[in-house]
């Protein structure tokens, strides 16, 4: 009987586990190993030379790496704050029983199911200097105030390219976190609100003293997700800047820089070793930030 059970377990787990091992786990672990080597990747495994932490030393003095990292950090500050604020606001409105809430919810969530590639292509047009609607709208406003319009290149200017990319990411993310918070808010017992209403608390006070504390665990989850998303940004940056990282690489992030080093050809003498080293640093940063995020937001869990 027991051997029948074991055979069953083995035969059902064998294929999924081996696929997962070969194509997911081995690459993640392999990244650690390759980052310690010098390897062009064009020759066989024999051509790998062990170089220890050389690639990591090179990272320390690589200005482009630090500039890309600083862009990630800007994303990390701006995107979660804006996304959380909008998502919480909408979720709070939708749990008040507003008429038409369902319709708005469906609309607001839709960007989340669109592919990042399509979102980026559409917004690439929105930001277009002459035929884009962003300048179209701004020029209408300018005309109304008797000013001349402009053809400002949002994605072609060093100062605006990164904020533009970030706003697209926020645009797409808000719906997801909104639905997440709505689900969390619906789990808060109605009596808590009723009791505080009798005590004369305003909706504003209720939001800060009941909703936010009881939603705290969900918000923490959201912070970790947004941290990971902020350290990624690969598809947005690639498509919105046509793979260039923006003018003077002003929107380059670690993921796009890594891709460019590993697969972008160019004059890198150690594409795979250096590319994966950047990936490993990125992984460490993500793990550190997630742990830090969870730590900073840790509170007594509210039982109810």
């Amino acid at each position: 009987m027991n051997s029948r059970k074991n055979l069953f377990i083995f035969s059902y787990m064998a294929l999924p586990v081996s696929l997962y091992f070969v194509f997911v786990l081995v690459p993640y672990l392999g990244a650690m190993a390759i980052s310690l080597t010098r390897w062009t990747g064009t020759s066989t495994l024999d051509a790998i030379e062990f170089r220890g932490l050389q690639s990591f030393q090179r990272i320390l003095s690589d200005e482009k790496f630090w500039s890309a990292l600083s862009h990630n950090l800007l994303v990390l500050i701006v995107m979660p704050i804006c996304t959380l604020a909008l998502a919480l606001l909408f979720a709070a409105l939708f749990t008040q029983g507003l008429k038409g809430a369902k319709f708005f919810r469906i609309v607001f969530f839709f960007p989340q199911v669109m592919s990042v590639a399509i979102v980026a292509i559409v917004w690439g047009f929105v930001f277009h200097p002459t035929m884009g609607i962003l300048n179209g709208v701004l020029n209408l406003v300018a005309q109304a105030f008797g000013r001349a319009g402009s053809n400002f290149p949002w994605l072609g200017n060093v100062n605006t390219v990164l904020p533009s990319v970030i706003s697209v990411a926020i645009w797409q993310a808000v719906g997801f976190y909104m639905v997440l918070f709505i689900a969390g808010m619906q789990g808060i017992p109605e009596e808590l609100y009723e009791v505080s209403r009798i005590d004369g608390a305003s909706a504003w006070v209720q939001f800060w003293s009941i909703t936010i504390p009881l939603l705290w665990e969900t918000i923490r989850t959201a912070v970790v997700f947004l941290t990971i998303a902020a350290m990624d940004m690969y598809t947005y940056v690639t498509i919105l800047t046509n793979g260039s990282g923006g003018p003077s690489r002003a929107a380059d992030v670690l993921a796009t820089y890594m891709y460019q080093q590993a697969f972008g050809g160019g004059n890198n003498s150690n594409p795979f070793g250096y590319g994966t080293a950047i990936g490993v640093v990125l992984l460490l940063i993500i793990l550190m930030l997630s742990a830090l995020g969870l730590r900073v937001t840790r509170r007594e869990v509210n039982e109810y």
């Binding site: 081995v26 993640y28 990747g41």
Partner: peptide, 21 residues
Amino acid sequence: TMFLIGMMFPVFLALVPLYLV
């Protein structure tokens, strides 16, 4: 745990080694 890890790591970290695999 092994399967859960895959949900946490962004795919692009595995890109280079995956290509080599």
